[in-house]
């Protein structure tokens, strides 16, 4: 557990205040915390576009004139939004895991006769376990992370679908009517007129959703991933001199304060950024905001 980064860290007992903290924050265990912060950012980076894709598909489905597709789209939006989100997270992760194992089970062990649900147990054959019991640790972690990303995407996809559905409806009718008058078919109208214009109506909702997504990332902890909440509890707990070179009291409060500040900074930066994007998107639009910009310039 000797600190490899700074040479003066070899004997922590003799260090001054500043150097002690410098060494303390570069221990191998703290690397886990920094990796977890990276995990959160990665989750956001992957989930946001995927959820937007799901949302777009859901909104298009809900708008379609083909009845089963409409029902599917509206059902997707309604079910996910009606249930407390955290319950959905807890439920979906187990359900998805069992579903995947069940499919693999049906394919890989066709001659298995025992029922899968034996009373209170869910039993599949060894070859169908996901990930395999023999797989290395990182496969388990990656699988857990992938499940989490998928769950987040499904849930936030439903929210995004709702926002985009509203935004598509909000594009002024005169615009689509004009497109039809010019002889565009519905597909052309949708891609050339509705989609480019809907973003200005969708952005406030999507921005809100982005903030919510940022604030939902600590729920990773509930999905059994070693995320920042896990590390904050782990590193902050009382450490005695017997087990570590850097003994300290109960610092969990300070670790969570740091997380709080991290999230506050993150949301603040996002807010400023979204304001800028909104300003750009409003430019030249036939909305009150666009009109105000035009007058401001004149």
């Amino acid at each position: 557990m000797r600190c490899p980064i700074f040479s003066f860290c070899t004997d922590p007992d003799t260090l001054g205040q500043l150097q002690w903290f410098l060494c303390y924050f570069t221990t191998a265990k703290h690397a886990g915390l920094y990796v977890a912060v990276g995990t959160v950012l990665l989750l956001l980076a992957v989930t946001a576009p995927v959820a937007l894709g799901f949302g777009f598909a859901g909104a298009v489905a809900a708008r379609s004139s083909f009845l089963p597709l409409t029902l599917f789209g509206r059902g997707y939006i309604a079910i996910v939004r009606g249930v407390p989100d955290i319950a959905f997270f807890l439920f979906f992760i187990i359900a998805l895991d069992q579903f995947l194992e069940w499919i693999r089970h049906s394919i890989k062990c066709p001659d298995w006769t025992d029922p899968i649900r034996q009373g209170n147990d869910f039993v599949v054959c060894q070859a169908a376990k996901l990930p395999l019991g023999t797989a290395p640790q990182w496969v388990h972690e990656t699988y857990g992370f992938a499940l989490a990303v998928f769950t987040f995407s499904i849930v936030f996809g439903a929210f995004a679908a709702n926002v985009l559905f509203g935004a598509m409806q909000a594009v002024p009718h005169a615009q689509t009517e004009t497109a039809a008058a010019y002889g565009m078919n519905p597909r052309q109208t949708f891609w050339r007129i509705v989609v480019p214009q809907m973003w200005v109506y969708a952005l406030p909702g999507l921005g809100n959703l982005w903030m919510v997504l940022i604030k939902a990332t600590p729920l990773l902890f509930l999905l059994g991933i070693e995320d920042i909440v896990y590390w904050a509890r782990e590193l902050g707990g009382i450490k005695t001199a017997r087990f570590t070179d850097y003994p300290h009291g109960d610092w969990r409060m300070w670790y969570f304060l740091a997380l709080l500040v991290f999230y506050l900074a993150f949301t603040k930066v996002s807010e400023v950024f979204l304001d800028r994007v909104m300003k750009r998107l409003t430019h030249g639009q036939a909305t009150a905001g666009g009109e105000a910009q035009r007058k401001g310039m004149a």
Partner: peptide
């Protein structure tokens, strides 16, 4: 308003709990 709306409730719970503990 900013502090409570800008951070996750989950983290607020954790922080408050450990704050009260100390």
């Amino acid at each position: 308003i900013f502090v409570f709306r800008g951070s996750p409730l989950f983290i607020q719970f954790f922080f408050a709990y450990f704050l009260f503990l100390s």
